[in-house]
Simulated scan of single mutants.
Amino acid sequence: MNIFNIIGPVMIGPSSSHTAGACRIGAIVNKIVDNDVLTEVRIQLSGSFARTYRGHGTDRAILAGIMGFQSYSEEIRNAMEIAEERGLKYEFIAEDIPGAHPNTARIYFTCKSGKTGFVEGASIGGGNIRVSNIDGMEVNFSGENNTLFVLHKDTPGVIANVTNLMYWRYGELNISGFHLSRKERGGDALMTLELDELPPEQLITDLKKMDNIDNALLIHAI
């Protein structure tokens, strides 16, 4: 725990959960699309997010995070106008997600390249978040650490190959959290590795060259 878990983050807005946390959920989408250009987002708000999002600025905060702004950015106040200037279409839907945390958002996105996907995350207090789903894959990370995603085939030996690569070539890296999800046995699977250090870009290049690895993506700590 650090001091910001106690006093809350530096932020624009009235609520660490409904604005700062919301902005950070949006920021995960910004990181996932990497250098692609977002053209459209549809944001489903659940629980208390759905009830109070206008008054607490949750809508502006999520949109600002999606566009790459921080929880303390002045641009949060004008996020909707900035989105329109950028040609980013957006829609908010107040609809509960069964079994979800009270402060949950599910963000569906479309990019200029044609790439689509969605992210589901919850604001759990003090500006902290917990991301639970990416493109239908269950995940479990906070965004506080540098996080490595490895999309791969659910084939024996893949996890060992990835961790061996990290040990032998990048031994200074320490894995602080690991989560594996898959839709079905033998199908697509997703490794989520939270790291104490920021890995070099070469690691991503090396991972993408490996057998049975479809993609690798690094999300810097937010």
Rank of each mutant, 00 (worst) to 15 (best):
I6V: 12
G8Y: 00
G13R: 05
S16M: 08
H18V: 00
C23S: 04
C23A: 12
I25Q: 00
V29H: 00
N30H: 15
K31W: 10
V33G: 01
S46M: 11
H56Y: 07
R60A: 14
M67V: 02
Y72D: 15
E74A: 13
R77T: 10
N78R: 14
M80T: 07
I82C: 12
A83C: 09
E85Y: 00
R86T: 00
R86N: 04
G87Y: 13
Y90V: 08
Y90L: 14
E91I: 03
G99T: 13
N103D: 13
T104Y: 04
A105R: 04
R106A: 10
Y108P: 00
F109A: 03
T110C: 06
C111A: 14
S113T: 11
G114I: 11
K115I: 05
T116M: 13
F118K: 04
G121M: 06
G126T: 03
G126S: 05
S132E: 08
E138C: 05
S142L: 13
E144Q: 09
E144A: 12
T147R: 01
I159C: 01
N161Y: 05
V162F: 02
V162S: 01
M166H: 03
R169Y: 09
Y170L: 13
Y170V: 11
E172R: 04
G177I: 01
H179F: 15
L180N: 04
L180V: 15
L180I: 14
S181A: 11
R182D: 00
G187P: 11
L198F: 12
L198P: 03
L198R: 14
L198C: 07
P199T: 06
T205C: 06
D206T: 03
M210S: 07
D211G: 06
D211R: 11
N212H: 09
D214W: 05
I222F: 15
